[in-house]
Design a protein around this nucleic acid. Structure first.
Lengths: 330, 330
DNA sequence: TAATGTTTTTGGAACGCTCCAATGGCAGAA
DNA sequence: TTCTGCCATTGGAGCGTTCCAAAAACATTA
């Protein structure tokens, strides 16, 4: 099924069919309709490779998928990928995956796809401090958008991120409205961009509400056992409600409460972060701050399309507020 | 960067460079080396679109990603996608995502990609009873592999699946070796292929070991509250250990035990299924049957590549045993 | 009717690659 | 030296599309 075949059926020239698809305003309405009918009847669709070759644009967006075993498990990936693909589809693009081995040659995957003209732009996620990808792509003038802020200084490109501070702030306000005054924060060790951001929202909102923060903030790595230890310290301080930097940490709070013979939810409230699959399953079910991943995917695609249409435009940044999902734990 | 440029640098003809890449055995060793050096120095990589156009093969594998909200949460997606991309990369292929809206026009996404010559084959997952995709692709002679058996009768293509029966069988054996005799099964309502398969492994192995199964099997939908109710019935029957069809169901068992003032692990053992992210986080941590997703991805790719190289070969099926991950719950 | 301008349609060329058939080089035999 | 046969290398053609400039159709005015 080619242009030529459609053209033959409509009784026009090859190029006229091409125009019917790409610049319909050039055709006489009557001709357009005739060509359109031929296209529909034959179920014609342009050959992607031929288009790519001629227009020098693959209409593909690269997404480097890292081996998850090393460190962070990239929890939310699939919903994000779904909304990304959907938004891409709508714009006539598709998402192409390629394996990335984190480490020294993390960039070779990107290099290769670029050399092969296998992608017009990239979506990054899991951008960490000291991530070299943004700088590298920026230098080369390759369009990209990151899910996750550029924590380290320089503005090197577009990004979309979830506003952790806004989330914990909303959590604090909600707990305060319920009458809690001694509201603690169960966070990660300082130094991670994401974690510090989430702590900041708690800190500033507590201050705003005139509530004390001294001794109400504890730190723990992201596992329930350590979190439980840290939580004990908050309990010792008489804290009645807690905002946690992750659902895993919130789980530590559950364990600390139970250890003291108390019941989560009834005796002391907690709000987690990420609304991971465990949240609704726990007993009592855990309130949490859900990342608006559908919106993140859509926004990533929007920024990237803008960038693709004009490499020189000023960079754009989007912060999306997470949604407070209330369950039995408050 | 084109063949012509590499050829100029190496002092040979365009086609010779092409041969150096695709059929190196045709070249005189000395020429090959010279061309190879030119390729390396210039960092040349063939233009994918040009190759695709000429060879009529996109070297892309389609993966339809469904909106996850509707029903099954497809928990494991990301690790599977990773191993799939990695295996694809190794064979010079890439995975391209496209959005699929489950329902009537579920097939249009596949149709479209096919018409555009945007993929050479497909990987399916989440294949359910009454899934029309396999039959549809089979009729058209499109290469594909499914992650998940074709539960409904006819053999319409290659698949790779996790052997649920083998998993629950191993779980029963392990519990029996620990001295348990009253081993229950906490499963889903009959009628789902996956669930029945997992039940079967428990059933047959119990019989093999001469252990009674009557009244030891209960059913519940996949949420902890319902599962807890079902678990109560097992407890009432004096069951001391349980194999669950999912980690969510196992969680129900935890709750039922706690409700009766008993401690999971210490007082009664349980083994879940899927080794979902919650398993290590629970207290006590949950033993579970981990799906070998890396292997599944690799095998899917292997079968698909075989199929791509020869459409007419007999269908092939691969069953992979899940791995028993032991934690505190036993 | 012819000349002019404008809109619509057309055919050739090119994107970068691989297929194919043909050419050139070289060794051994006549 | 010339011929035969084999192996290494080459140039032309074409995959299906869009760019571009030229041609044709049509409308408008002289």
């Amino acid at each position: 099924m080619t242009l030529e075949m459609v053209a033959a059926r409509a009784g026009v020239a090859r190029q006229t069919v091409s125009n019917a698809i790409n610049s319909p305003e050039l055709l006489r309405p009557q001709t357009l309709e005739r060509v359109q009918r031929a296209i529909d009847e034959l179920g014609y669709r342009p050959h992607r490779a031929a288009q790519a070759l001629r227009t020098r644009a693959s209409k593909l967006i690269g997404y480097g998928i890292r081996s998850s075993q090393a460190g962070v498990p990239t929890p939310v990936l699939d919903q994000f990928l779904h909304s990304l693909s959907e938004a891409a589809d709508q714009a006539g693009y598709r998402v192409v995956l390629f394996a990335v081995t984190p480490g020294d040659d993390e960039l070779t995957g990107y290099q290769q796809l670029l050399d092969e003209h296998g992608a017009d732009g990239f979506v990054l996620s899991g951008t960490d401090r000291g991530d070299r990808r943004q700088g590298w792509l920026h230098e080369r003038g390759v369009p990209f958008v990151a899910f996750g802020r550029t924590w380290s200084g320089r503005d090197v490109g577009d990004w979309v991120d979830v506003d952790g501070a806004a989330g914990t702030s909303a959590a604090v306000r909600h707990l305060a409205a319920l009458g809690h005054r001694k509201i603690g924060f169960l966070g990660w060790p300082k130094g991670s961009g994401v974690g510090d951001d989430r702590a900041r929202g708690w800190q500033s909102t507590m201050r705003e509400l005139g509530l004390p923060t001294r001794g109400r903030r504890v730190e723990s790595p992201d596992d329930p056992a350590s979190a439980a230890e840290a939580a004990e310290r908050l309990l010792a301080g008489g804290v009645t409600a807690v905002v946690a930097a992750s659902d895993t940490l919130a789980l530590g709070w559950y364990q600390a409460l139970r250890h003291g013979g108390r019941t989560p939810g009834a005796d002391a409230a907690v709000i987690g972060f990420d609304d991971s699959p465990i949240a609704p399953l726990l007993f009592p079910s855990l309130s949490s701050l859900a990342q608006p991943l559908d919106a993140v995917g859509r926004e990533c695609m929007r920024l990237l399309l803008n960038r693709l249409s004009d490499t020189r435009r000023p960079t754009e940044h989007v912060l999306l507020a997470p949604e407070l999902v209330l369950r039995e734990s408050v």
